[in-house]
């Protein structure tokens, strides 16, 4: 485990020391402001309602935020795992890393985990800011009650979303490890995100129409984790250092 953490530690160090990260993070924050705008648009309609209505509506919104906001940052994780590996292959530092006493699976998992963790750190930061603005600054002064998302939203945000992001990162990293063409990896993560977001989007329309509560949303994440995780497991069986070396230039 020591060398797995060494990989994660080094990658996190690199990510948060790279200037590019600090251009990317504000961009992601900017993208997540649509949550605020949609909430405040809704709040404008319910501001004069009874406190119970405001609380119930806000809670549904916060639940949705727990599901959706961290997933937005999956994009960041995929970009990191993709760009990081492409760069390491170009610089041939990956070849040096593979010559150390670390298995290729550990390298793969370590790199995917570091991308996931950095994306989650930023996602949770954004979520906490969003919660403070919505629940504490806006709603609390009005209703004088603290409001928290549903337990399932917490479970999703803290367990299921990280696992989903991790499995997506694993698949993106795998493709970047074994393919000569970095665009292939970008295409894969674009497709995976499209599938994930598509599943969530369709569910947000059809589950309520079928009379299924939003509380069942975690099942969508479980489904994604099972599918992506199974594919990642099958990929791990085929991953060898030789494949990585031969897909690198030089």
């Amino acid at each position: 485990m020591t060398n797995l953490w060494a990989i994660i530690r080094k990658d996190l160090l690199e990510i948060f020391r790279a200037r590019g990260t600090y251009f990317y993070i504000p961009g992601m924050f900017l993208m997540s402001t649509f949550f605020f705008f949609s909430y405040f648009a809704l709040y404008g309609q319910i501001a004069n309602e009874k406190p119970d209505v405001i609380l119930a509506t806000t809670r549904v919104f916060l639940n949705g935020m727990g599901y959706m906001l961290p997933m937005l940052y999956a994009l960041f994780a995929c970009n990191l795992s993709s760009a990081g590996l492409v760069f390491e292959k170009q610089k041939r530092s990956l070849e040096s890393l593979m010559a150390t006493p670390v298995s290729i699976r550990r390298i793969w998992i370590g790199k995917s985990l570091s991308a996931t963790l950095s994306a989650l750190a930023i996602a949770y930061g954004a979520s906490i800011v969003a919660y403070c603005v919505i629940a504490l600054a806006e709603v609390y002064p009005k209703v004088h009650k603290a409001i928290a998302p549903h337990g399932l939203a917490f479970l999703t945000a803290l367990v299921l979303v990280p696992l989903t992001i991790f499995t997506i990162s694993l698949l993106v990293s795998y493709i970047q490890l074994v393919t000569r063409n970095p665009r292939m990896g970008n295409l894969v993560y674009g497709l995976l995100l499209l599938v994930s977001w598509g599943a969530l989007f369709l569910a947000s329309f059809y589950l309520p129409a079928l009379g299924i509560s939003v509380d069942y949303y975690p099942l969508i994440f479980v489904g994604l984790i099972v599918v992506f995780g199974t594919v990642a497991y099958l990929c791990s069986r085929a991953l060898t250092k030789e494949k990585v070396v031969l897909s690198s230039k030089g």
Binding site: I7, S93, E95, S96, L97, P101
Partner: peptide, 27 residues
């Protein structure tokens, strides 16, 4: 120990951090 054709060093890290990384990998 090895030195490959490309040195495989991490440009954005200091020499100390590069060595610290490998020290951890080798325990």
């Amino acid at each position: 120990g090895f030195l490959l054709e490309a040195d495989g060093l991490y440009d954005d890290l200091s020499a100390w951090d590069n060595l610290d990384y490998y020290a951890r990998l080798y325990g």
